[in-house]
Design a protein around this nucleic acid. Structure first.
Length: 605
RNA sequence: GGGACCGUAGUUCAACCGGUUAGAGCACCGCCCUGUCACGGCGGAAGUUGCGGGUUCGAAUCCCGUCGGUCCCGCCA
């Protein structure tokens, strides 16, 4: 149907007859001569329709509208010297049309412009409703191609490293822990349900027991939770699992994989190895397990220095088992007014929004003089003040912001303040890729709502051998890959011993019977020669989002869902026939919630 | 489950503190134009201001509800 792609035509193609297919990006009708910018995936090229050629072609060209689908037969020639367009890759050539076939025309008005010149923002719901049009636009073409390149690069690299690509079931078993499942009723097995996988976790472990040694998959995962800009109900993981490798070896392979992707996609050479930071240190220094290390503003624990102060906000926080931590902002005195850090201010609101009671501060003036509220100033001896400034690395001009109270809350609040200030004060350097491994996560964490220990990552992470005597406080052999403050991958070495797995499940509150019922198949497998193994999973959508410089993973997915988990294009989800439900042995309890009872005005107060 | 913001022509936006006939660019339709490339010129059509209710002499504008969208908290190992 075509001999060339539009975007590839160059003067080196010389004088020849070509056939092109594509969409009308834009027309310029001069009455006598008509220029058509013909577009396909590779770009656009100018097609010239001259009245001295075929009158029929000219008559057809006069009727064209944007996005008409065309086949053009023509003669590729150099443009006249003074008509060369240096802004276009194909700007030195044009195709003199000798034949024009309208393969499809446009009915009605297009909901939005598609042309490469038409970069006006369009309401996102409209983009999603007509995603096929949106996909034709430059931005989505670029993102989809970039995603493809990431996937292909990963595949080639992993293939070269001896990984096998294996698919795992989409219809599987609902397991406790983790997110809400998407459920699928079984017609054949009445009353029983499949779940769509939240991840291929158990299957990839079973593949290791199956002796596959190295597995990967671009795996679709499903989680029925509320959405965010970086969360979709179905998303894609680049999922890996390996046998007989140490944690260090696994991290190294992944560093090479990531460096390979960055090299191939962006031409950026990442310095290896990536820095490693223990979870403990990350929490201490940044207040989060995924610190953005593109800028400083580290936190300092000053609990011991303020525990005995008369200033009760500090001393009581420590007395109650909490902490007092400080965020030192160099030149903060100039950069932040009191209005912003006192009640009503935006910085104050960041702290209290995360649960902090307030945001104490000290301004360090010339000569180390402290400028702060009286209650703090009065309770600090000169020696103690000196020690405080020294520990926080404060210089004249520094603004010290304090969080006091429960350790988790203080970390959360100061983490938010830290990120907020970095953005507000533009401390984040552009074009910086700060990768970081956070290692030695806690195995378990206390869930206050459910009054029990639960897995921080998932129940199959192997505890640190040194900590095995006290699983409640054990570190896990788990690791997250953090990029510019976002988690892009997470993994661990797995438990490959059934007894230990049973033990971990018991600490999490599973009775032996319940553990057996839910995870018996895994523990049976572990008992039949499971090799030591471990792996990792990347959030592919998020990775592509970062590489593409987008703010939402929806722009990296061909057909994403809205925040209400709807698909405006296919109008899904949608009601089904009652007969379908009956066949599945399912009845809906859904009732329209907006029908209130008739309001009896006399009864109200 | 909660908070915030948004919804005006096909589309992107405007319309001040509630006040004449709700405007403009692009797209669309018609006419003109032989070297443009975001072509240009002249003219035209296009609106239940998401939907429902309320306040008011008067509502795109204020209030309530509702639907849809976005961001965030909770939630998401």
């Amino acid at each position: 149907m075509r001999t060339h792609y539009c975007g590839e035509l160059r003067p080196t193609h010389g004088n020849q007859e070509v056939t092109l297919c594509g969409w009308v990006d834009r027309c310029r009708d001069h009455g006598g001569v008509i220029f058509i910018d013909l577009r396909d995936r590779t770009g656009t090229v100018q097609v010239t329709v001259d009245p001295e050629g075929s009158p029929q072609v000219f008559a057809q060209a006069e009727q064209l509208r944007n996005e008409t689908v065309l086949r053009i037969n023509g003669h590729l020639r150099l443009r006249p010297e003074d008509s060369i367009n240096p802004k276009l890759a194909t700007g030195a050539v044009e195709v003199l049309a000798t034949g024009l076939t309208v393969l499809n025309s446009i009915k009605g008005t297009l909901p939005f412009g598609v042309s490469v010149h038409d970069e006006e923002p369009v309401r996102e719901e409209l983009r999603l409703r007509h995603r096929y049009l949106d996909l034709r636009r430059q931005r989505m073409q670029r993102n989809v191609a970039l995603r493809h390149l990431v996937m292909q690069t990963a595949r080639r690299f992993l293939d070269g490293q001896g990984f096998l690509e294996v698919e795992t079931p989409m219809l599987t078993r609902s397991t406790p822990e983790g997110a809400r499942d998407y459920l699928v009723p079984s017609r054949v097995c009445g009353g029983e349900w499949f779940a769509l996988p939240q991840s291929p976790q158990l299957f990839k472990q079973l593949l290791m027991v199956g002796g596959l040694e190295r597995y990967y998959q671009l795996a679709r995962c499903f989680r029925d939770e509320d959405l965010r800009a970086d969360r979709q109900p179905e998303f894609t993981q680049l999922d890996l699992e390996m046998s007989f490798l140490s944690q260090e070896q696994i991290l190294t392979i992944n560093e090479l994989l990531v460096a390979h992707i960055w090299q191939n996609v962006l031409g950026v050479k990442l310095p290896l190895p990536f820095p490693r930071l223990s979870w403990r240190e990350a929490m201490d220094r940044y207040g989060t397990d995924r610190p953005d290390t593109r800028y400083g503003l580290e936190l300092t624990d000053v609990s011991d220095l303020v525990a005995d102060l008369k200033f009760k906000v500090f001393s009581q926080a420590v007395a109650r088992g909490g902490v007092v931590k400080c965020l030192a902002l160099p030149q903060g005195n100039e950069q932040l007014s009191n209005v912003r850090i006192k009640p009503g201010g935006d910085v104050f609101a960041e702290a209290t929004g995360a649960g902090a009671g307030g945001l104490a501060y000290i301004r360090v003036r010339d000569g180390g003089v402290l400028d702060t509220i009286g209650a703090i100033k009065d309770s600090l001896s000169p020696e103690r003040a000196q020690a405080l400034l020294q520990r926080c690395g404060a210089q004249p001009g520094t603004l010290l912001l304090f969080g006091a109270g429960d350790g988790a809350m203080v970390n959360k609040a100061l983490d938010r303040v830290r990120q907020f200030l970095a953005r507000e004060l533009q401390l984040i350097p552009a074009n910086t890729w700060n990768f970081l491994w956070v290692v030695d996560f806690p195995l378990l964490a206390w869930n206050r709502d459910e009054q029990r220990l639960e897995a921080l990552h998932h129940p199959f992470c192997a505890p640190h051998p040194a900590d095995i005597h006290d699983l409640g406080k054990a570190r896990a052999q788990a690791y997250d890959l953090v990029l510019n403050g976002l988690e892009v991958a997470g993994g661990s070495l797995r438990i490959h011993n059934a007894a230990l797995q049973q033990q971990v499940l018991e600490v999490m509150g599973f009775s032996p019977q319940e553990a057996r019922r839910q995870f018996g198949f895994l523990m049976d497998a572990l008992d039949m020669g499971a090799p030591p193994h471990g792996g990792i999973a990347y959030g592919l959508d998020r990775l592509v989002m970062l590489l593409a410089g987008e703010d939402s993973i929806r722009d990296t997915i061909a057909f994403p869902k809205t925040q209400q988990a709807r698909c405006p294009l296919a109008a899904a989800p949608a009601p089904v026939e009652p007969s379908q439900l009956k066949e599945l042995h399912v009845a809906s309890t859904w009732v329209q919630a907006n029908q209130e009872e008739p309001n009896d005005g006399a009864a109200t107060t």
